[in-house]
Simulated assay, not measured.
Amino acid sequence: MKSQLWLASLVALSAALPAAADTAPGDVAYTDGAVAVSLTGVAGDAAAGAKVMTTRSEGNCVACHQIAAMPDVPFQGDIAPALDGVADRYDEAQLRGIVSNAKMSFEGTFMPAFYKTTGFIRPGDAYSGKAAPENLPPILTGQQIEDVVAYLLTLKE
C-alpha cells in the first residue's frame, strides 16, 4: 500500500512540474543565423505548426508566403518567397533561426522576428498611438516556433 501511495505521489509531482523550460528570447544562440538547439526541448508538432502559420493572431505566415501544400487557405501572399521545398533548401537549425529572427540570416529582410523581445524600433501599444510597454512578449512562444519548424520540415519538393 505504501509503495502505491509513493508511486501515486511521484506521478502527481512529475505531472505538476513543467516538461521543459523555454530558452528565453535573449538567450537564443545564433550561429550564422541558425539555432542548433531546440527552444523548448520538446519536439514540434507539424499540425500545430500549420495552424500557427495560417492563424492571423499567431504567425500568419501565409500573409506573405505561398504554400502549395495548403490549397484551402485563401489569400496567400506573394511578397515573400514561396515555402514549397523549403526543407530541401534549409536544415532544421537554419529554419529555427529564420523563424525566430530572420534578420540574423538575412540582413534587411522585412520578415518579423517572431522570437524577440528587445531591440525594436518604436513599437506601438496596439492602436493607441502610445509607446509599447518595456517588456514586450515574443510574437510566438518557443513551442510555437518548434511547431512551425516541424511543419516547414514537411515541405519538400
Rank of each mutant, 00 (worst) to 15 (best):
G129M: 09
W6V: 12
L140P: 04
S3C: 08
L95G: 00
S9H: 01
A63E: 10
T23W: 04
A113E: 03
T55G: 04
K2Y: 07
K51F: 09
D72G: 06
P71F: 03
L7A: 15
A102M: 08
I139S: 15
A50R: 14
A50S: 09
P25K: 14
D84S: 12
P138M: 05
V148E: 13
A47I: 11
K51A: 13
Q4T: 10
A102K: 14
E92A: 12
T141W: 01
Q4R: 10
V35R: 01
D72C: 01
A8D: 10
L39E: 06
Q143A: 04
A8F: 11
V37Y: 01
A132M: 12
G108I: 00
V35P: 10
M104Y: 07
F106V: 10
M111Y: 00
L7C: 14
F110H: 06
G49Y: 11
A63Y: 04
V149H: 10
A19M: 08
K156T: 13
A43G: 11
T55N: 06
Q143F: 00
T109N: 06
E58D: 10
L95C: 04
S14H: 00
A69N: 14
Y115G: 00
A93L: 11
C64H: 02
P137F: 10
V52G: 00
T117G: 10
I98N: 01
A80D: 04
F120C: 02
A132Y: 08
V99H: 09
A20G: 14
S38K: 03
Q144D: 05
